[in-house]
Nucleic acid binder design. Sequence first.
DNA 1: ATAATTACTTACATAAAGTAAGTTAATAAT
DNA 2: ATTATTAACTTACTTTATGTAAGTAATTAT
Lengths: 103, 103
Amino acid sequence: MDQSLICPRFEKAITLLSKRWTGLIIYQLLNGPQRFCTVESSIGISGKVLSDRLKDLENEGIVKREVIPETPVRIEYSLTEKGLAMEPLMKEIEKWSQEWLEA
Amino acid sequence: MDQSLICPRFEKAITLLSKRWTGLIIYQLLNGPQRFCTVESSIGISGKVLSDRLKDLENEGIVKREVIPETPVRIEYSLTEKGLAMEPLMKEIEKWSQEWLEA
DNA sequence: ATAATTACTTACATAAAGTAAGTTAATAAT
DNA sequence: ATTATTAACTTACTTTATGTAAGTAATTAT
């Protein structure tokens, strides 16, 4: 009796967002391209997990990684079109949180 | 250099949704009140974790638990107003998934 | 040659989730 | 009265995920 009526695409999306940190990383990157250490310190994630997540998100086509040969080397992470398309979704989370959660 | 510019309410909301299964449980309950075993089999979560999550969500005021003295006893879980208010958010996730993920 | 900086990686410890068996409580059948 | 049945959990144990802290690679400045 495993009648999964849940759309597999929706399930995949929510599974993505249900991974710890994923949502916050995307939200943070909506502020524009930024480097590893900026994301790390602004959301308080460990370097190890951030490294994992950014790879996952790159594989999903949500995040883009760009090496900028400066001194020392700078690496910029940014959202792809697919990632940027999550903005309305994030706005809805924001809305809900402002209406239903206490400060 | 820990300049967390992220709104604490938003952070709490996304932390909630970043817990494995939370989003799917809420989504499933948008179909209307239902019992433990229905949620369990429709989303494929283990009884143990479902039990934990439903307690968390009850404590957050998102889910309501009602004992119905039938034979055998039936327990119905449903969304509160706060939980129902997540529908637009879920719809946005659905939209994104339909536009950006493959079937 | 040595030090400094960013972006990682590795080894190890702790916490969360999965599995399967067991418990409780309310009847219902024998 | 005893046994069985069913839903809703719990508990004990295993596996997986995350956290912490130290280490490495590459590049350039001194």
